[in-house]
């Protein structure tokens, strides 16, 4: 069960209509290394990991949903009231035909989200290593979006989100260390 606070994790200021930037941000919204994939991955893996690391996965999954909400706000505001012509010019003509002004879980190229973007292996080490890799890939994706964006306000929020990937990566690395401490001793007969 969750308690919802009707505010964003970190402020999102959108000063100009920029559907092309919205399209690029979609990579983190519904892409392979995006926040939705991260949230669903951790929220699902959490059931079959050792007790000591359930909390890390649950807490980070929860935070990822708050990141998803920030991205949704950016995409919504960057495309709100954009004309079909503006959307088409930004490469969102096909998106407009299918979804109008609605948001959709798809990547920057318009490929719809799929759960094949992530795994639940049932092996704690395999799962945590995937999680560490996912955080580093998300960090890199934020870097490339920041590189291609000239919106200083959006970039401020993206820099915040990028830094959170660093922190999460470290938490998962710490979870691996916690499990290594659970190593069984040899039975001496």
């Amino acid at each position: 069960m969750w308690v919802y606070e009707k505010k964003l994790l970190y402020p999102v200021e959108v000063k100009e209509c920029n559907p092309k930037l919205a399209r690029y941000i979609a990579e983190q919204y519904g892409g392979a290394d995006g926040e939705l994939a991260a949230a669903l991955r951790y929220m699902n893996q959490r059931y079959t990991v050792p007790d000591k690391v359930i909390g890390v996965l649950n807490d980070i999954a929860t935070e990822e949903f708050s990141h998803l909400e920030m991205l949704a706000t950016m995409i919504y505001k960057l495309t709100k009231d954009a004309t079909p012509e503006q959307l088409e010019e930004a490469g969102l003509g096909a998106h407009y035909v299918n979804h109008g002004h609605a948001l959709f879980y798809e990547n920057a190229a318009g490929v719809p989200f799929t759960t094949t973007y992530f795994q639940a292996k049932g092996d704690p080490i395999a799962d945590l290593y995937e999680d560490i890799a996912a955080e580093e890939k998300a960090r890199a994706t934020y870097q490339w979006i920041i590189d291609i964006s000239d919106d200083a306000w959006i970039n401020d929020s993206l820099k915040f989100l990028r830094e959170r990937e660093n922190v999460h990566s470290l938490r998962f690395r710490e979870a691996v260390e916690v499990l290594k401490e659970e190593r069984d001793r040899k039975k001496i007969f």
Partner: peptide, 13 residues
């Protein structure tokens, strides 16, 4: 070396 390459835990039941 007195450790194995396995870990274990007792899940909540």
């Amino acid at each position: 070396m007195d450790y194995t390459f396995r870990g274990s835990y007792e899940p909540y039941i």
